[in-house]
Nucleic acid binder design. Structure first.
Lengths: 141, 141
DNA sequence: GCATCATTTCGTCAGATTGGAAAATGACAG
DNA sequence: CTGTCATTTTCCAATCTGACGAAATGATGC
């Protein structure tokens, strides 16, 4: 039981993973969307997501190549709901979280295909003047 | 704010520190009592206690040479109360916590002077057959 | 079946964390 | 003021963690 508790406690004891929790409060996200918002390497994001899923904080859904994560609404880890609730009540006014949410709005406006392989760069391109390929868009699945 | 949150989250993301939290649920304890129950080096316990106090989870009171810690009833860290409440609701049936509590009963039966300098050994002596100096006792402050 | 794309896993590096011994510090007794 | 005791701090070694690049894996399209 202590080990189970520690698994979740450790999962929230990192700023990147807490940012991911706060991002997912607005709903399910694709790995590439989380990667774009956080501006980290895909491998790094994937590792964090995996650890949070193992801890019972997240649930995963695969749709073709794309993998989606969302906050767990039921968990094998007894303590996950309590930690999710705590995190849900916290950091409402945090500037980093606010920035992330603004970036998420822009990321959500982009097709996944544009984000993948380019991550944050796609986001930067979207803002850059004269971003020629920003007219290229595909329907989100 | 995120940093403040992380400070507390990290403080509870270690099994030893969670055990300390659960021990202190029954009330204020002296450093040597915590050290005796946990069977760790005084330096180790002191470091954990210090980190938890910095995180806002504990409050400290000095009485002569003896230093007492208890759960914080008010904290400079906004998130400490929520984490304390969560930990308070958790691990009720955990065997490690149950063992700690049993050891605490025996530790509380011993004078502080017997515990200090001997820590867990004093506890072991108290159980050993023919423990000659177990009759030596002083009033707890 | 091959090429491509999205994601995960592995290996590496740098930094952080944990436990403990020893030294330092704070409080008290004489 | 000195010695003793309790606790904290410093230093060290070992382990863990987070970041990333590269390789591997899973899914899809042709």
């Amino acid at each position: 039981m202590l080990e189970t508790f520690e698994t979740v406690a450790r999962a929230v004891a990192d700023p990147v993973r807490v940012r991911i929790l706060k991002l997912l409060e607005s709903g399910e996200l694709c790995v590439c969307q989380v990667t774009a918002v956080l501006a980290l390497a895909p491998a790094t994001v994937s590792k964090h997501l995996g650890m949070m899923r193992t801890a019972g904080l997240l649930q995963q859904r695969r749709e073709g190549k794309w993998v989606y994560y969302r906050l767990a609404d039921r968990s094998l880890n007894t303590y996950a709901p309590a930690f999710l609730a705590l995190a849900g009540q916290a950091l409402a006014d945090d500037p980093t979280i606010a920035d992330d949410r603004q970036r998420l709005v822009r990321v959500n406006a982009l097709p996944l295909a544009v984000l993948c392989g380019r991550g944050a760069a796609a986001l930067d391109d979207e803002l850059a003047p004269g971003a020629a390929d920003s007219t290229c868009c595909e329907a989100s699945p």
